[in-house]
Amino acid sequence: MSDAPGRTPMIEVRGARKAFGAAEVLRGIDLTVGRGEIVAIIGPSGSGKSTLLRAINHLETLDAGEIRLDGRRVNLPLRGRAFERHVNALRRQIGMVFQQFNLFPHLSVLDNLALAPMRARGLDRQEARALATTYLERVHIPEQAQKYPAQLSGGQQQRVAIARALCMRPKIMLFDEPTSALDPEMIKEVLDVMVELAEDGMTMIVVTHEMGFAREVADTIAFMDHGRIVEALPPAQFFTAARTERAQLFLSRILGH
């Protein structure tokens, strides 16, 4: 992996467990993501991929295990105000992109991007809007700044969502099936932005069904099934020489041979 020697990994997950009622969704997950590393998490639906991603951002609370971001514990046994302060500080360092975009429909594109820098990082309006404009350019839609989300195509909305997360200058970006809600002709424009992000050295965890993207961009492919990471390999090895039967079965289904 791409870690410089002696430096802590960006994300470390150890023994993560989570159940919703009787359903065990995560059954002991270990995962290490180095700085600048890109991990694609693949696997059948219901295998716990999204839950893992949401746990890293503390949108879900683990039942057991621990998660570290840049050496600092994510899941601390805090309550009340202390917990609130902890997760807010943490989430500012983690960018998250959702399947359904989750843009704020009542705000213009520019204000969608400027809101968190203003409120959570204390920038004034002018600074926040300048920052927002910079990142809109990064995702190639500066001309849409004054529009409302509903006026944009799905691909444009998802690019705005990526820019919105980048505005907080996160240490890591989490993508939860970012192209699954898109029409086929819009998938590429979103993936292109993600590729550029990867080339700039962003640490990324991407839950995806886009095997082409996983193969070409990811450093590591983690295959999840029934709440466990069954295999984690570089793409070249994974696609040609997956060791487990379940991974082989999944690949044969999804690649259609």
């Binding site: 951002n57 949108l59 983690i94 960018g95 968190a116 959570a120 969502a161 997360a165």
Partner: peptide, 9 residues
């Protein structure tokens, strides 16, 4: 969730 994941309280 989107608002909270951006670090808003």
């Amino acid at each position: 969730e989107a608002a909270r994941s951006l670090g808003l309280s």
